[in-house]
Every structure is written in C-alpha cells, then in structure tokens.
Design a protein around this nucleic acid. Structure first.
Length: 738
DNA sequence: GGTTTAGATGTTTTT
DNA sequence: CATCTAAACC
C-alpha cells in the first residue's frame, strides 16, 4: 500500500474503510447521521483515483443538491488537487439535462429545449384544463399537477395512466396529462420530471447512446439514496448497467421527500436487484453529543415502519437539551436571538455556529424581524427564491424566447410585459388561433406579419401591437450571434422596456427590483467570453436547475442562518435551534391524520435534531399566527419522546405540566425576570403601568388568576393594541409611579 | 385595454 | 393575513 493510501485510510473506522476500499461491484452504505458519510464518499473517490487509477472523469457522483456537489468538489480538491474538477458531480436533474442536451435529439427533443419550472407547469396545466373545459373548482389544478408528476416519476405516460385508470377521475387525469405533454412538446419544453423520465426513455430507445454513457462512467455513486424516486433509481441502474459499480448511500430514517415521490423502498429494491451487493452500515456518530444522539434516537424509534439501526458515539454527554415554551411567535424569536447572543458573549460560541431551523418558510418572518430588531446579521436560505421574483422571471422569459420562440409559457408571460396594449382577450384569441391551426403562437405572429391579408379576428390596432412585439423579439434574437450574454441582457432590458417600466413605476420596491435585474446581469457575466448564441442555453439551464443562489459559503462572515428543516439536511452546526415544536407545525397539520405522513414528520424532526453538534434547543410557542386562527397549540408529540434525564432540569416539570408556562431564560440576560417562582398573590393591579421588552410601556387592564399563574391583560399604545400575557412569563416589569 | 379596488381564497416541504 | 382574482371603473 502506498503512503498516500495510508494517509487516506488513516482515521477511518473499520466499516468506513470497508466502504472506501470496496472498489468493485454494487455497494449499499446505510449511514446514520453524522457517521462521516460524506467523508467516506470523497475518500472513496480519491482512493479509486490513487489506488485503482481511475480518472475522476470516469466517475459520477450524484448528490441531492447542487450545494452538496459543490461541497464535495471542494473537499476532493483538498484530497486530490485539481483533478477533482473533472469529476461529474451534481444532481440527477443536472446530469440528465446534459445528457438530453447532447443526445436528446435521438428521441425528438429539440436542441433549443427549455426547462420549465413548477410555475410554468402550473400555467400549462391550467391552460390545458381550460381547453378541456374542466372546472378548476372541482378539479384543483394543484392536485391534477401532482397526480401527473407522480405518474411521471413512476415512469408512466398518459397512455399508461389511462390504461390503469380506476374511475373517471383517473381517466380525466390521463386526458389532462396527454394535453399537457402535447403543450410541452409544442413549446419545446421539458419539465423537471421530464428531465428524468425522458432520459430513461432515451436510454431505452437508443441503445447506442446508453452504451456510450455506460462506458463513460466506470463508477456511479448516489448520495441521499433514500430520497430517490423510481425514475432516478432506474437512471442509476441504467448508467451502471455495464460496469455494475453502483454505490448508494442512504439513511431510511432521513427520508423526508416522499411528497416528491421519493420512495424508501428503493433501498429494498437495491438489495433485490443487486443480491451480490456489499452492505456496509456506518453507525458510529462523530457529530453530536451523546445526549443529542440519544434524544434523537428516542424520537425516531417511535416510528413503526423502520429498520432499527443502533447508533452509538464516543463523544461526551455534553449539555442537556433545552426545551422552551414561549407565549407567542415573537417571544419565541426573541428568545432564540437572546440565547444565541448569550452563547456568544458567555460561552465563546460564534454567530455562524448557530442555526435556526423550522418546518415552514413562513416561520422565518418572526425570526427575521427579531434579527433586525436586535441587529443580528442573518441569512435566510431559500424562502422566496431569487429566480421566482417577478421581474427576474420576466427577464428569463425574454431570454427563453430568444433561445426558443416556441415557448408558449414565456410568450404569454411577457407578450404584454411591460404593458404594450395586448390584453387578455387578444392573447386568448392568439392562442385559440394557434390551437385551431395546430401551429405555435409564434408562427401565427410570423404569418400575421408576413401576410397582411392573413385572416384573423384582430383589428388593425391589435395587429400592429402584435407585429410590434414580434419584431422586438426577432430583433433581439438577431443580436444573439454577435453579442455576449451580458450585452444581450442589457439589450433585452432596454428594448423591451422592462427596465424603464420599473424605473418609472411608483412601486415602492422599484429599487429592489432594479437591483435584482442588475444581479441577473451580473450572473450572466459569468457566461461572457463567447457569443450569446452559445452561452445562452447554458445560462438558462443554470438558472432553471441551480436554486441555491445565495449559497452557504464557508466564509469568515458572521451571520445567523435561518433555514427550513428540509434544506438543512446534510448540514451540521454546533448550536441548533428548532422552532415551532407544536402540533400542527411539526408535525404539520396536513400530515397529522395520515400515519405514513406522520412518520415522515417524525423523520423531519429527527433530521433537525441530528444536525446539532453540541447544543440543541427546541422551542414551542403557545400561540402562533396562522391564517387568522389564533387557537392555543399543543406541544409537539415528538417532545414527549425525549427522556426527561436528557432535558435541562428547569424544563422538565413543564413536560406534563398543567398549562403553566415558564421562561427558558432565567439568567441575568432576561430583563426583569425573577426566578420564575409562581405568584401567590396578584402581581399587578389594574391601572398599573408596566414595561414590556417588546411592546414597551403599557397599562394593566386586568389581572386574573389562571391555574398556577396569572393572566394579565395589558393595553399597549399605538396599533399594538391589547395583549394577554402570562405573568410566569416574567417579561413584565413594574414601572415606578412618577 | 388598462387600472384600481374589493372580495374571496387558500394556505408544506423543493430539484 | 397576504396574495391572488374578478369585477367595476377609467
């Protein structure tokens, strides 16, 4: 064994070594959280390169997000230098996009195809349903879309859906499905599911293409295997069909994407399809304290559909888990921030070591406000994504039209943006005409312009506007070969009037929106150096597939990360705050009465808990602003599964408490807090002035007893109104009468 | 055809 | 409660 190899294997435990050194045949790695799975993958790639002499170019590593791929490349660069750049690393979607770009013509996918996002999908579905005269009230387009999407990820076409139809609803779905696929075809569009299913189709129908790709990748690896769907499983199987070196890594307990048709059974299928597979189980956790790991284990063990995997750690016990009840969402956010600040000032923690994670994006709002109030720098991961913003989508639509004028979705999106006198009626008539003649709307426009006698329902004014739009489009397209992408973007913004329309509008966000457009232009600058003709498709693909625009970089910057529990998968932080540990939030209301979905919610909680290295905080708010209703929420059932001895002493009593609430913070950091002792006599009288850390000065209106506590009704000035606050909450401070 | 307003409506997670 | 939609107005 060479010295380099020794270095590679050093510090790995026996199962990790086995996984790294297993260089032939199928391999299934069942890896618990924090078991060094990423390390095993990167070391395995380096090992294949250094020990077996396989070029990274002949290895594919499929990850779940582009961010994970980038991180993998970074780690590999440390292990093996620049060679790592040649590794094919990315998502299934990105890999398939490049396969289709290269070879898709074999099954009739045009070279200028554009990738449709979920918004585009929804628009097309609605349009199809309108044509089929289906009432969107009776058949919500969302559920129609999700049925179609499910069929696609199971590799079923419209015919297959029709054939298996069980009842009129299924037949209807099949009908919309067929119309939708036809519309996609007309638009030269490919949606996210198509990227996968059409790649399978390509491989099945064009054996010579399949053969080439099978030859190319000697090794094929899939991370987060528990979150693959049927189509992805099939793609992996096809890619690895020749060399049979398929390595998959997954943890059934961390499967949280079944709603995207991920299928945990793929792990079982793998064992069946590859009976000769080496199976390695990584069960030592290097990440978390023993306390955190045990708590997480207790939570996940309550799932019934599960293969028990005993995890262990040699790490120390660490700090107990802290569970905090707060009264409102604002209090919750405030306490998270204050505790983070306390850790920073007293425990030597850095801000970037902390993360706040939650079930739904909407929860980030209160946290964001608290950050602003306390001057804590923060970054929200995901949320309203950059590429989803209106002005950005408009610009992309123009660019897509330049690349592919047949794109109906983009055409209808921007034909009247900015307003240029082409109203809904005109657009409807245009679409109907196109439909009638069986030609794309763009071609109709073209004929309209070429032949003044072309019979249409349009009057002279409409005609003028339509042909005006057409010449704008054609003018921009003609610039494509002679310009670089950033210049082309400028031309689009100028000639279309997008920029001036925003500048001249009285929209208060106008400046933000212009900034977004500038950012897009900046992004396009990465693709400079070649005529737009060549760089535009790459740019559009990037924009469609890479969502983590604001990437989590390992820079020196100090900020607090706010992120959903779904997106935090695969990451780790010394300090983790999970907010919204309530029935209805986690587990989410929509999952609560379905046992299977409930198990997934539990896995989501498990994923969140196991992100923590040293400290784990679980927050719960009694009341939460959720679509109007303010009902008191109950503590998440998942909290009950954490053994008492792992929880900070102060919080234990509340576990099965009688509704009394206490404050998590009892230290000096809490303004006006006493030690939380329950009041024996009314603490305040009506008419007294009090100070609240958030709402400011207020007047007590009422003070009435509650079991073990007092509820205060306090009026605050301005539009803050009257609040009810529990006294044990300790936030109110008496103001001396002057 | 465009703009403003009131009203309804529908609420998870993302490549 | 915030965002989208439809209808009334310009």
């Amino acid at each position: 064994m060479t010295a380099r190899t020794d270095a590679l294997l050093e510090g790995l435990n026996p199962p990790q070594r086995q996984a790294v050194q297993c260089v032939e045949g199928p391999l299934l790695i069942v890896a618990g959280p924090g078991s060094g799975k990423t390390r095993v993958i990167t070391h395995r790639i380096a090992y294949l390169n250094q020990q077996v002499g396989i070029s990274p170019w002949r290895i594919a590593a499929v990850t779940f997000t582009n961010r994970a791929a980038r991180e993998m490349r970074g780690r590999l660069a440390v292990l093996m230098g620049d060679g790592a750049q040649r590794l094919t690393a990315g998502t299934f979607h990105a890999l398939c996009a490049s396969v289709l770009r290269r070879d898709g013509e074999a099954i009739g996918i045009p070279r200028d195809y554009v990738i449709m996002d979920d918004d585009d999908q929804m628009n097309l579905i609605k349009q199809c349903m309108e044509q089929l005269q289906l009432d969107p009230k009776r058949f919500p387009p969302r559920s129609v879309l999700s049925a179609i999407s499910r069929a696609k990820s199971q590799l079923l076409g419209p015919e297959a859906v029709a054939a298996r139809a069980d009842g009129p609803y299924d037949r209807l779905i099949a009908q919309v499905f067929a119309a939708y696929q036809a519309a996609l075809g007309r638009s030269h569009g490919v949606d996210f599911d198509d990227l996968l299913s059409r790649t399978v189709e390509l491989f099945r129908r064009a054996p010579e293409v399949l053969g080439r790709w099978q030859e190319r990748f000697i090794h094929f690896m899939v991370d987060e295997f528990q979150d693959t769907n049927t189509a992805q499983y099939e793609i992996a199987r096809l890619f690895a069909g020749k060399h049979r070196n398929l390595a998959v890594v997954g943890d059934p307990d961390q499967s949280i994407y079944s709603w995207r048709n991920a299928d945990i059974r793929n792990i079982l299928s793998f064992k069946k399809d590859y009976p000769d597979a080496t199976i390695v189980s990584l069960s030592q956790n290097y990440r978390s304290t023993r306390t955190i790991l045990q708590a997480a284990q207790h939570v996940i063990r309550a799932n019934s559909q599960r293969i028990e995997q005993e995890l262990f750690t040699e790490n120390g016990d660490g700090a107990p888990i802290r569970i905090a009840d707060t009264y409102s969402e604002e209090e919750e956010a405030q306490q998270v921030i204050r505790e983070a600040q306390r850790l920073i000032s007293e425990e030597g923690v850095q801000l970037r070591d902390c993360v706040v994670t939650y079930r739904v994006n909407a929860q980030s709002r209160a946290l964001e406000e608290a950050c602003l109030r306390y001057g804590v720098p923060y970054k929200i991961v995901g949320g309203v994504r950059f590429y989803q913003r209106r002005e950005v989508k408009d610009l992309i639509a123009y660019l897509r039209l330049i690349e592919n004028p047949f794109d109906e979705v983009s055409l209808t999106r921007v034909i009247n943006v900015p307003a240029r006198g082409i109203g809904k009626r005109t657009v409807d008539e245009l679409l109907e005409l196109a439909n009638l003649r069986g030609i794309p709307p763009y071609t109709v426009l073209q004929m309209l312009a070429d032949d003044p006698e072309y019979p249409t329902p349009f009057d002279a004014r409409q005609r003028r506007q339509l042909t005006g739009f057409l010449s704008l489009l054609n003018g921009l397209s003609s610039l494509k070969p002679e310009m670089e992408l950033p210049q082309l973007v400028d031309e689009v913004l100028e000639q279309s009037g997008l920029r001036s329309a925003i500048r001249d509008s009285d929209d208060p966000d106008a400046e933000d929106r212009l900034e977004n457009l500038r950012e897009m232009r900046g992004l396009s600058a990465e693709f400079a150096g070649a005529p737009a003709e060549e760089s535009l498709p790459a740019f559009l693909e990037r924009v469609a597939l890479v969502s983590d625009q604001d990437s989590l970089q390992d820079d020196e910057e100090q900020y607090l990360t706010l992120i959903t529990l779904h997106q935090i998968k695969g990451l780790e932080y010394p300090v983790v705050f999970i907010t919204g540990m309530e029935e209805g939030v986690l587990p989410h209301m929509r999952s609560i009465d379905d046992p299977e979905q409930l198990e997934e919610e539990r896995r989501i909680a498990y994923v969140g808990m196991t992100r923590a290295r040293d400290r784990l905080y679980l927050f719960r708010s009694l009341r939460r602003r959720m679509f109007g209703s303010f009902g008191a929420s109950r503590r998440s059932r998942f909290l009950k599964d954490i053994p008492l001895d792992l929880i900070e002493a102060g919080e234990r009593g509340q576990r099965h408490g009688n509704g009394a609430m206490g404050s998590m913070e009892r230290g000096p950091s809490l303004i006006g807090a006493d030690d939380g002792a329950l009041p024996q006599s009314p603490p305040f009288k009506a008419g007294e002035k009090v100070m609240h850390p958030v709402f400011g000065l207020g007047i007590v209106v009422d003070c009435s007893p509650r079991p073990g506590d007092y509820e205060l009704t306090v009026a605050f000035p301005g539009n803050q109104g009257v609040k009810r606050i529990l006294h044990s909450y300790g936030k109110l401070e008496r103001v001396q009468r002057s």
